[in-house]
Design a protein around this nucleic acid. Sequence first.
DNA 1: AGCGGGTGTGCAACCGGTTGCACATTTGTC
DNA 2: GACAAATGTGCAACCGGTTGCACACCCGCT
Lengths: 333, 333
Amino acid sequence: MAATLKDVAERAGVSRSAVSRAFTKGASVAPATRRRIEQAADALGYRPNALASSLTTGRTKMIGLVSNNFHNPIFLTVFDLFTRALQDRGLRPLLVNLTDETDPDNSVRMLRQYSVDGVIVASSTLPVSFAEAFHAAGMPVVHSFGRHVTFPKVDVIGIDNIAAGRMAAETLYRRGYRNVGFLGGPANATSTQDRYTGFAEGLSRHAEMSLTTSYAAGYAFEAGRDEMLRLCEAAPLAEAYFCGDDVLSIGALSALQDKGLRVPDDVGLIGLNNMAMAQWQNINLTTISNPVSQIIEKSVELVASSVENPDHRPAAHTFSCTVVERGTLRPES
Amino acid sequence: MAATLKDVAERAGVSRSAVSRAFTKGASVAPATRRRIEQAADALGYRPNALASSLTTGRTKMIGLVSNNFHNPIFLTVFDLFTRALQDRGLRPLLVNLTDETDPDNSVRMLRQYSVDGVIVASSTLPVSFAEAFHAAGMPVVHSFGRHVTFPKVDVIGIDNIAAGRMAAETLYRRGYRNVGFLGGPANATSTQDRYTGFAEGLSRHAEMSLTTSYAAGYAFEAGRDEMLRLCEAAPLAEAYFCGDDVLSIGALSALQDKGLRVPDDVGLIGLNNMAMAQWQNINLTTISNPVSQIIEKSVELVASSVENPDHRPAAHTFSCTVVERGTLRPES
DNA sequence: AGCGGGTGTGCAACCGGTTGCACATTTGTC
DNA sequence: GACAAATGTGCAACCGGTTGCACACCCGCT
């Protein structure tokens, strides 16, 4: 069906090598031959087969994009930015949806079979070992939104969740809240753990602060809502909650509204991520920004460069967060 | 680095063909040989290279997933379901993000170079001709969420937007609204056009209905909000609006709340899609359901089967919508 | 023992490209 | 005009698999 190298070569009256060279940047081809080849190629609608050439060049220009966060609205932005950043560099995202899988073996095997040039693991919940499995299988890999560690085995690009937790603690303290709660995501997610650690540590700097802790079943609206409804029933509420993620905050907000409680007058809320929806005027969530686009830009840059330079030294690339003041905490007095 | 057919063959003391056959379903291999080969393969961690085999089999098991709706929250669900449905059949999604591109040439070229087995165009805004371009280039293609036409050149799977528009009209009529508005998505999107057509036609069956029309700049929260703010300034509002999409409705809702108007007491709203967020209790949007998961299941089934059977007869597969009663329209009297 | 049919395996060509090497041709230099 | 260097092109091998064909082998049957 589709024209091949041979077809073009015959039509142009040259060898297959000549045609191949006419299509590879930097090869030497006489101007006249090049013209003849281009004409023949145009006439036949010829395009070199990327997969066939990958066999000899060892490059497919495909990048595995592995994720498990298909329920958090922020990932719409994440996928948008990743795919565009990759496309801008001529790379193609091969998408892998993990859905509850925590064992990397399947993905590793599959992405090896497809000879991807590199892998991006985009997840704030997977353990460090997940991304390392790709590295062990010989693939360049970066872990975006992953846990910040000082000497990682693979590149990690994200925020320092512990610092973000501290920032939340400090923010609540300065607004005069004393009796506060942590409403985290799933307890086994690294981001939940680190945000909790930082939050608790930040609070402990101020003797008068007290903390109650609970975990939602997932990073999703319903999970946040259910957990907050439970809290409303169970015991007196805290004055303010640090939610492990914006979508949890919004769920919590909905629960509080249902219970007839006003935010921030009765209960304060602060989220994390600053996803697009947080600034919707009917939500107007005070939150901590996650510099998603910087993280993604850096991730793609790193995966692209470690394809070229396989023995590059992995590091943690950490971007800083800032508090975004909106309407779900009382103002600083 | 990675083990190849040859390595396994040498280790097992057989020919390369034997190894190949041991890995292809239905080929005849003596039990004893198979065992030796499997041992050797395990020892070397061998996995057949999917791309190399695609050269001779003509199948890559990759499917191009082309979309331009990376800002509508419903697409998070869409990507989740598509990737899972594809994976369940052993297919791999190669994601293409169009971002403002309306010319299919680039995508067609790229997906041909990667020899994808088929293409899914997932978009409610692209013209019919877009998906047809892949068909013309010899690739099996389905258009999910595309315009319903009676004799399409490629498979179209989605809802009948004209019928959905009529349904919205009828719903508003039965609830006693007489003076209504259409707040559409971008005027050049096929879904906007068809929903408008159906809505206007539905209204015209009742002499006493009157209609005002306006279009938001895109299928996005801010676009809906901005347009509704403009309407609030410009002229007396209609009693109720049919918004071309849930996310527009939510934007409109936010605008109305800001203006101190109550929904549904002062103004009614009905959306379309029934995305997850529409049932969030602080939104609680009355809307028309879009049977997304049926559409996706059917799309994947069709693309997979038209890979096997290339000269299959394309058709429009239309799923029906229903009104989802929630809190943004006054009750039927 | 002889024969027919089925099963298992290797050879070699092929899929659609790339690339080292050898050689021919052009170009530049004095 | 002679010679070296630079440039352009084809041959053939290779990337990692698949597959048609030929052939060897084993089995059961008369």
